[in-house]
Structure formats: structure tokens, C-alpha cells
């Protein structure tokens, strides 16, 4: 009985150590997942956020993109557009943030595929964006390409994907 208890305790301890290791040294997949979740949280603006904080948010969101990043989107009722470089993305983000009283961004059903060099990754997900409460909600399949630059996972390309051809 004592031996079984010791064995159980040893297993629990091993499990805890493993968990601690994954927290301290996350795998590249986990780091990318965390980065994408963090981008959604950063792009979310609760109602009543003051303009200064909104402006600050733009800068924080831009930091997720590489200097030569490109965003390509083709949306129903909007058409196809491409934003190239941080300046164009900053301008678009500032316009989007200013135009909504609140904004909720969520990336769901996220799958990460790491490149063979483990320094690049492709992320597929479904973006759910709600503006002004739940009045305007859009759901869109998306694909991101990320690259590890100076220890940070940065988005080099983001594009909308047509679920229906």
C-alpha cells in the first residue's frame, strides 16, 4: 500500500514537473498559439475605452507585424484590398479602431503548422469580429504566416480565405 502511494505521488510530481517545464519552455506551436490569442486580446476594445488608449492600441497591434508585413483581404460587400507594410496597416487599424465604439476580436479553431526550420509557421483560424456590441458581427476564415524574428513571432502575412469557392 505504501509503495503504491509512493508511486502515485512520484507520478503526480513528474506530471507537475512536466507541466512546469511546458510553462517555462513552451513549444513553438504553443508560443504561436499564444501570440495569436494575444493579438486578438490586443485588438479588442471594450466600450468606453478612452481615445488615448485607443491610439496606444494601434501601436501595440502594429508590433505584432513584421515591417514588411502584408494583409490581403477579400470581403463580401467590401471587395479585395492589400495593405503593405506597417504604415498602411497602422492607418487601417487607426481608422477601424476610431470607427467603432467597441470591438471584439476572437480567433477560433486555430491550427498551427510549423515550418521545417521551426522559425516559420502557418496559422489557419476562424476570425469572429463584433463591432458596437453585437450589432455588426463578421465571421471569416483566415490564414496567417509568421516568422520568428529576434526571438518574437511576427506576422509576415495575413489573408482572408474563401470558405466557399
Amino acid at each position: 500500500m505504501k509503495a503504491a502511494l509512493r508511486l502515485a505521488l512520484a507520478l503526480v510530481l513528474l506530471g507537475l514537473l512536466y507541466w512546469l517545464y511546458t510553462v517555462l519552455f513552451p513549444s513553438p506551436e504553443k508560443a504561436v498559439l499564444k501570440r495569436i490569442a494575444s493579438l486578438a486580446a490586443t485588438a479588442t476594445i471594450p466600450a468606453g475605452t478612452n481615445p488615448l488608449l485607443r491610439a496606444n492600441k494601434v501601436g501595440t497591434v502594429i508590433a505584432y507585424f513584421s515591417p514588411d508585413a502584408e494583409i490581403t483581404y477579400d470581403l463580401v460587400g467590401v471587395g479585395a484590398h492589400t495593405l503593405s507594410g506597417r504604415d498602411e496597416i497602422r492607418e487601417a487599424a487607426a481608422g477601424g479602431f476610431a470607427g467603432a465604439t467597441s470591438l471584439s476580436v476572437r480567433f477560433q479553431d486555430v491550427t498551427v503548422r510549423l515550418g521545417p526550420d521551426k522559425l516559420s509557421a502557418e496559422v489557419s483560424c476562424t476570425a469572429k469580429v463584433s463591432a458596437n456590441g453585437d450589432q455588426d458581427t463578421g465571421i471569416q476564415e483566415m490564414r496567417f504566416q509568421l516568422r520568428k524574428l529576434d526571438g518574437d513571432w511576427l506576422i509576415t502575412r495575413a489573408e482572408t480565405v474563401k470558405t466557399l469557392q
Binding site: Q108, D109, V110, C125, T126, I139, E141, L164
Partner: peptide, 17 residues
């Protein structure tokens, strides 16, 4: 029901068409 996200997993997607 059509999944937005890429196929391959049998687990339930959160968003569907």
C-alpha cells in the same frame, strides 16, 4: 453545416456555416 476552419480534425469546430 460547413466548417470554416480547415478539415482534418474530428473535434467540433466552434464556427460553422
Amino acid at each position: 453545416a460547413i466548417r470554416y476552419s480547415e478539415p482534418g480534425q474530428f473535434s467540433e469546430p466552434k464556427q460553422l456555416l
